[in-house]
Design a protein around this nucleic acid. Structure first.
Ligand SMILES: [Zn+2]
Ligand SMILES: [Zn+2]
Length: 722
DNA sequence: AGCACGCCGACT
DNA sequence: GTCGGCGTGCTC
């Protein structure tokens, strides 16, 4: 009955192949079937996924499929996408397949069932007395309503119930129970779109393709894509909306649920594994037509996908840090291209890459520059912190910022202070001998947190800061650098009356902390909100009139060609939090380099100027989008082995690349963070015309020349070069 | 990755 | 003699 091409559930790179198995008589197999197969010399039973049907096979030593699970997990379209991912990001089949199947499938996740109680035989004989009669009566009147626990909660002994079950009076039956959100949401009416929004929606509907919607904060781009979703729904097409995880606030969920009701499924991180499983099935069964979620929602099993929206398209979280290290934007475009659908990329600060594609005409460009919801743009001021020092102000707040904070507090308006670094100080060292407190597992300095706690942000190592220097016993230990905790301390000291809320990974450990803090600040239970990156998106406060950026050059000084892009985006995004309908906001940008072009462009709300300058720098330096970057990181606990290995690999790579004058090789050299969790790390960076074919050959070469105890991690177009 | 096979040292 | 060390090679 033919053969099946199967990918087995084995993490190894070497197992990244399709194995041919024979389909036994009468076994119902198709692409997407999950099977058990005998594997290896010991015929160990492994999970496998059928990725192709093969009529004739001439491979030797073919074995039979052992068993098959009912139903299918994916179809041949999925296999096509997985193959594309494998090509682009050098991942394995298995890593690709895992994105498409419900989490926990291999661990045995399933539908939640409940053992419901039903009446069966009539009560008779010696059982016809208490407590049996009451129990039988209760279940007889409410068939299928109770489970065992309900009965014992009502004060009956579980053994009485068991007696009834044993005698067949009561029957137990498993019923699939639903875990999905059936709450009613308040209808969220669509507002009337303005002229600009209508044209945008029409443009997207006119023909399939990719569109970049560049809309300033408050221009109402969400309403544009909600309108497009509604129109797709009328055509019977499914839609996926990707949003950064942090933006999936209860407010956002209410908005979508209120607009699309039962047609929509929201995939947020608070769903349990079981709830995700159920939602995945609701999508597969066609019960929902729209999904909203973070990156991974892209791979939900819709039947007739016509639209993908990627909101805040510039966000680096759309690039996966784990294998497959895919870009959701790229994959969404591939999918819509193949399906003849539409991809909408939306952002107030588009990535250089997307904007470049738009201005060169490769994708459509739609600009929204009318403010639909907010008043005018915030007033931006840059402060030179060198001047402050010269004027004798050694505080972290410039005189302008301090004055504006006081003004805002006086008029009962709220303030946001942004610093993209958590902790109290970034490093601690002894002033007498220069000893620096470093992590024993990583090559980074420990961050000081309040409560005399030193911690490593890479491995979680913690220790208490000693009173005296471990090297020279001096008591003169000093902290350097600034984090959000120090900002909090200084705010409390300098503005003693103000109520302070601090939001960073340390205070908002989970989603509900985050929501509590968000709500408390929104309800004006705080005057000053201090936060990291976390506060730059999704937050919408009505009473914030001042935003202070404590150190705008933090993200600028990273050794990464995207530092300018990131700085511009951060400033613009956080500045978008300022202002209200009736009153424009003020933004104070503190920096030691206020003349830096990215800061100046952000200050002047000049996206186009920023783009023009940045794109020519990219071209000059042969950086993306004019080239591709491939980062090859190798790691091992054995430093000598690692160095020896990567030097061999490096030499082989140079030999291989000889003649490819469009590829530049840098390294091998130690990574900027040369040790993490006891693993030493070295890297090779390649830059140039790295098409999938060459990339694959490079990967094969690296793996072939590497020993077992050295781990290899390859990232194409990484978000950061560190 | 796992697992079997294989060829050498040091044990009852 | 044989128990077990981990180097090598293969997995439909
Ligand atoms: Zn010292
Ligand atoms: Zn560490």
């Amino acid at each position: 009955m033919g053969f099946a091409g199967i990918v087995v559930n084995n993490e190894s790179q070497a197992m990244d192949r399709i194995f041919t198995y024979k389909i036994p008589e009468k076994m119902n197999i198709s692409v997407g079937s999950r099977v058990k197969v005998p594997f290896g010399a010991s015929n160990k039973r492994l999970d496998g996924f059928v990725v192709e049907m093969i009529p004739e096979a001439e491979v030797k030593g073919i074995k039979d499929i052992s068993s098959v699970f009912p139903g299918t997990l994916f179809d041949s379209w999925t296999v096509e996408v997985v193959e594309e991912m494998r090509k682009r990001y050098l991942c394995t089949y298995l890593e690709g397949i895992r994105l498409f199947i419900p989490v926990g499938t291999l661990k045995g996740a399933g539908f939640k069932t409940e053992e419901k109680l039903y009446p069966n035989l009539v009560l008779s004989g010696k059982l016809n007395k208490e407590p049996y009669a009451s129990i039988a009566d209760l279940i007889g009147k409410n068939p299928g309503k109770f489970i065992r626990a309900d009965i014992s909660r009502m004060g009956f002994s579980p053994s009485s119930l068991n007696t009834l079950i044993r005698h067949g009076v009561i029957e137990v039956s498993s019923v699939r129970s639903s875990r999905h959100d059936i709450r009613d949401y308040e209808n969220y009416e669509a507002p009337r779109l303005n002229q600009e929004q209508l044209i945008a929606s029409d443009t997207i509907m006119k023909k399939p393709g990719t569109y970049l919607v560049h809309g300033i904060t408050g221009s109402g781009k969400t309403e544009v894509f909600m309108d497009v979703i509604k129109r797709m729904l009328k055509e019977g097409k499914d839609s996926i909306v990707l949003v950064p995880e942090i933006s999936l606030t209860p407010q956002m969920i209410e908005r979508f649920k209120g607009r699309f009701g039962k047609d929509i499924s929201i995939f947020h991180s608070r769903l349990s594994e079981g709830e995700r499983f159920d939602e995945w099935h609701r999508v597969k069964n066609g019960e929902v037509k729209i999904a909203v979620g973070a990156r991974s929602a892209l791979f939900l099993p819709f039947r007739d996908l016509g639209l993908i929206v990627v909101d805040e398209e510039h966000e680096s979280s759309y690039k996966s840090e784990m294998n497959p290290k895919y870009s959701a934007v790229e994959m969404a475009e591939f999918m819509m291209d193949r399906k003849g659908g539409r991809l909408v990329l939306a952002s107030a600060t588009p990535s250089i890459n997307s904007y470049h594609r738009a201005v060169t005409g490769e994708i459509g460009l739609i600009t929204l520059d009318k403010r639909a919801t907010k008043g005018s743009l915030p007033e931006m001021t840059a402060v030179d912190m060198r001047e402050e020092l010269r004027a004798g102000n050694r505080s972290m707040f410039s005189r302008v910022l301090r004055g504006e904070i006081e003004k805002a507090l006086d008029s009962k308006e709220q303030v946001i202070l942004f610093l993209n670094r958590r902790g109290f100080s970034t490093f601690v060292s002894c002033r007498s001998c220069g000893h620096v407190f470093n992590c024993p597992n990583c090559s980074v300095s420990l961050t000081y947190h309040t409560s005399r706690d030193l911690s490593c942000h890479h491995c979680g190592y913690r220790q208490v800061l000693p009173e005296t220097c471990p090297a020279c016993s001096s008591r003169y230990i000093k902290q350097f650098g600034t984090g959000t905790e120090k900002v909090e301390e200084m705010v409390r000291k300098e503005f003693p009356g103000a109520r302070v809320v601090r939001m960073d990974r340390d205070t908002a450990k989970n989603k509900s902390d985050y929501e509590d803090m968000y709500n408390s600040f929104k309800n004006r239970e705080g005057d000053i909100l201090i936060g990291t990156q976390m506060i730059t998106k999704g937050l919408d406060f009505k009473n914030v009139t001042l935003v202070g950026i404590i150190a705008a050059d933090l993200s600028l000084n990273l050794p990464d060609f995207r530092a300018g892009e990131r700085t511009f985006q951060l400033i613009t995004q956080v500045a978008g939090r300022a202002g209200r309908h009736d009153k424009p906001g003020k933004v104070i940008i503190q920096s030691y380099t206020p003349e830096d072009p990215s800061i100046v462009n952000a200050k002047e709300h000049d996206y186009k100027g920023f783009y023009r300058r940045e794109i020519s720098a990219r071209e000059m330096m042969y950086n993306p989008p004019f080239s591709r970057i491939m980062s090859i990181v190798q790691s091992s606990v054995d430093e000598a082995l690692l160095i020896k290995n990567i030097q061999t690999v490096g030499a082989e790579l140079r030999k291989f690349l000889f003649g490819y004058d469009k590829i530049i090789m840098l390294g091998p050299s130690p990574c900027l963070i040369s040790k993490i969790k006891q693993n030493h790390r070295w890297q090779v960076l390649l830059k140039g015309e790295l098409d999938p074919d060459i990339a694959r050959r490079i990967k094969d070469l690296v793996l072939e020349k590497s020993v077992r105890d050295v781990r290899t991690s390859i990232d194409l177009d990484p978000t950061s070069m560190l």
